[in-house]
Every structure is written in C-alpha cells, then in structure tokens.
Design a protein around this nucleic acid. Structure first.
Ligand SMILES: [Mn+2]
Ligand SMILES: [Mn+2]
Ligand SMILES: [Mn+2]
Ligand SMILES: [Mn+2]
Lengths: 217, 217
DNA sequence: AAATAATTTTAGTCTTGTCTAAAAAATTAT
DNA sequence: ATAATTTTTTAGACAAGACTAAAATTATTT
C-alpha cells in the first residue's frame, strides 16, 4: 500500500517518463511536485526500497514494471473521477482537476471498477486523455501540437497539454473545445503566434497557447 | 481548514455528544478512535485552540457551535457518499462505511452539493440515518431500540446502531432490512434474548442484536 | 585542464500525529 | 478519612514528510 505522498510521486514520475523517457532527474520531479530536490531524494530512496523505481545516485530514476502499474492505476482513477464530475455533477472541464487530485487517492477495490461501469467504460477524460482500463491498457491516440500544424492546414482539437483552470477558461472564452475544427490561417515566425479560424471566427493565439492544444489532422 | 485527523476527532466527539450529552471524556474519544488517551489530550488542546470545542483539564470536552457545524458537514458528506455507493454503484449497505470514511474528507465546495442534487436530495442514508441539508439542518426521526419493545408489540425497522459490515451481514442473512415489520413474540429475561417474527419467520436474537436495531412503533 | 556553475545528496531541523511510561488528579472502595 | 483504583495529563520519543544550509558530484565554460 502506498501513502498519498508516495502516490503523487509515482504519478509525477510516470507523467515525466511519458515525455522525457527513462532517467527522470530529481530536479524535474521537484518542480512538478512543487517541492524541494532534497525532499525528492528522500522519497525516491523510499520508493526504490519498495521496488517501484530504480535509483542510482546522481543518475535520476526510472519506474519499474510494478511502479508503472501502480501509477497507471492512479491515472485511471483520476480520469474516471474527472468524467464523473463533468458527466454527472455539472462540473466544467476547468473545475475537475483539483477535486480529482483528491479523489484519485481513495482506496477501494470495488469503487473504481463500479464507477467505470456506471460511466459506461469511457475511453477519454474531459481533456481528451485516455483512460486505462481495469488491466491498465489504453490506446495511445494519434495527436500532435497545434503549433506543429502548417499554414492553411486543418486539424481537430483532441486534447490539451495543460489542464489548469486558467488555460481551460481561456479556451472556453475563445470557444475552443474538444472536437472543434481548427484551421491555421497564418503563422508569425517572429514570436510563433498564429492566427487560426475556429467556429468561423478568426483569432490570434500565442505560441504558448498553440503549444498546449493537441490536434488530429 | 481541518486536517483529516482533526475531522475524525470532530466527528467522533459529535457522535458521542449525541448519545451522552456535553462533556465527553478523553477515554471515550480514545476508544471510539482506537487511539490512546494521551493522543486525544494532545489533539483536543489543538482543537480548543481552533475554537471548535471547549476543554477544561480533567473535565472532558464539548463542541462549540462552530465545532458542531464542522462535524455536521462531515456527517453530511459521509452519508451522501453512502447513498451514492448504494444507489449508483451497486454497493450493499455493509460495504459502504469504510469507503465513505475516506470520501467524507474530500474538500470541494461544489462537489457535495452537486452530489446532493444528483441523488435527489435524499433524507436518509442506507442505514436509516438522517442526512443534514446544505445548512446542516435535518429532522430527528422518532425511533427506539428493538430491545425496548414489549412482547406482542409490532415495530418497523428504521435504522441500525452499528454500521459494521459484520452486523449488517448478519441482518442480511436473517432478512432484516429497513422498512421491515418486526413483532416481538417473547423475551427471555435471563439473557435478554428475544424471539421475533420477521418476514413470517420466527427467529431468536440476542440482546446485543436487539440493542442495535432501531424501530418505529 | 581548470574554473565555474548547476545539480544532487547529506546533515540537521521542524511539524503533525502518534506512542509509552510516569506523574497528577479524580473517583471509588474500605 | 485514607487507601486503592481509574482517568487524565505530561514528558519524552518516534515516523513521515517536508525544509534549509552545506557538502559532494556532475556538467559547462573558459
Ligand atoms: Mn486532471
Ligand atoms: Mn484530465
Ligand atoms: Mn457510515
Ligand atoms: Mn450510514
């Protein structure tokens, strides 16, 4: 059994590995968890003891199979709860993350699988992220950043890279949501900003924005 | 804001006050929380600081209005989650308590009130206990212990005094559930056991059992 | 190849919540 | 009223998880 804190470390390392591959640095974990590197060192020693990750001094860490399995369970819980909040409790997609951060730590063998049944085995969470099934399996969907789309090309919004309330509210304000068609009208090479057509409206978005929107094209 | 541990103390003291009135002893709190009296002393000092209870050395504690309000919130959450688990996730009444013990600590202004809406503002939890509304109000239902019912009198089961899985499974096994009519056929003065008619079947139950079933008559 | 900078680890401290053992106070029995 | 018992509090310790400051290691410049 893992403590709330241990679970948060596992999840963070899992997400970091998804982006950067094996060998996650102490500092990057510290940044993600908004804690100090020294605290991370303490904790990863403990997690190495528990054999959910491999740790060599100064070399960063990598999850073991067991560690990945545990992390996947937490991600599954997080995303299923997010679906529940949006589908059943009238939460909007920018309100769910913080509550799901708490709910993902509830321990009950039955709870999460029944929730899955109740929700009809959803494959995606409200932000377009895949939900692992009971066995931890999920299909990776084809997606790329809007920032990589060339001028005059069209894509469909299928996810976001940042689930913060601030960013999602910005998207709402500009009528950007999952399933929306987005056409890149022009790109400014100076600052990376681009003008896009969405909902038959032209808007200009910064590089930071287009770097946080996933599309399928 | 209160920690998980503080919330558990508040809830326990609240429940003890409901039975024994003001001035709850250190020992009784320790017993309820399965901890040591010395730990309780430490914690009630902290809670007194936070003005949720009044504490005088060697005199036990009493909740303040604020303390009662906080405790009621937690009870509301606990019972609403229990309803959710039974009504929506196919839990039986003996499976919900432990999960609700975890869920009751989730902090979200919106979550619990939306859950209330989603469930249709239930007035009772699966064990017949009243659910406080948004303002902490709830009606106390008229009920007494089955053990106080005289021979040949009839009552309707409206609640249980013990929500442990073991006890509830015993009730299931004997087809005793909320809403059931129960007639006391005879009472044995020697050990307090009684023979009752339920579901047109005669069964003999111990004093301990009849002391944990609430009826309306 | 040094020197400098950045990263990581260690050492020591703190807070929360718990515990045991001993002391103090209150209660009960004689 | 005194003694014995029970309850409660205090004192000191510990584990988890975090922090700061300093030391050790690795990476980057010059
Ligand atoms: Mn999320
Ligand atoms: Mn999400
Ligand atoms: Mn319960
Ligand atoms: Mn209940």
């Amino acid at each position: 059994m893992f403590s709330l804190s241990e679970e948060n470390y596992l999840k963070s390392i899992y997400h970091l590995e998804a982006i950067h591959g094996k060998g996650i640095s102490t500092n990057s974990i510290a940044k993600k968890l908004e804690t100090k590197a020294s605290s991370v060192t303490d904790m990863i020693k403990k997690l190495a003891e528990k054999e959910v990750l491999v740790y060599k001094k100064y070399q960063g860490v990598s999850l073991t199979k067991l560690g990945r399995k545990e992390a996947t369970k937490i991600v599954r819980k997080h995303r299923l709860w997010e679906v529940f909040l949006v589908e059943k409790l009238n939460f909007s997609w920018d309100e769910v993350h913080d509550v799901a951060e708490q709910l993902e730590h509830i321990k009950s063998p039955k709870l999460i699988d029944e929730l899955d049944v109740f929700l009809g085995f959803p494959k995606m969470d409200p932000h377009g992220d895949p939900i692992p099934d009971k066995d931890g399996k999920f299909q990776k969907i084809e997606k790329k950043l809007l920032s990589t789309l060339e001028e005059n090309k069209i894509g469909i919004c299928v996810g976001v890279n940042d689930s913060s309330s601030d960013f999602l509210k910005y998207l709402d304000k500009n009528n950007i949501s999952l399933g929306q068609k987005i056409k890149v009208l022009s790109k400014e090479s100076f600052d990376g900003s681009s003008t896009i057509l969405i909902n038959s409206k032209e808007i200009t978005i910064s590089k930071k924005i287009s770097n946080n929107i996933y599309i399928q094209s």
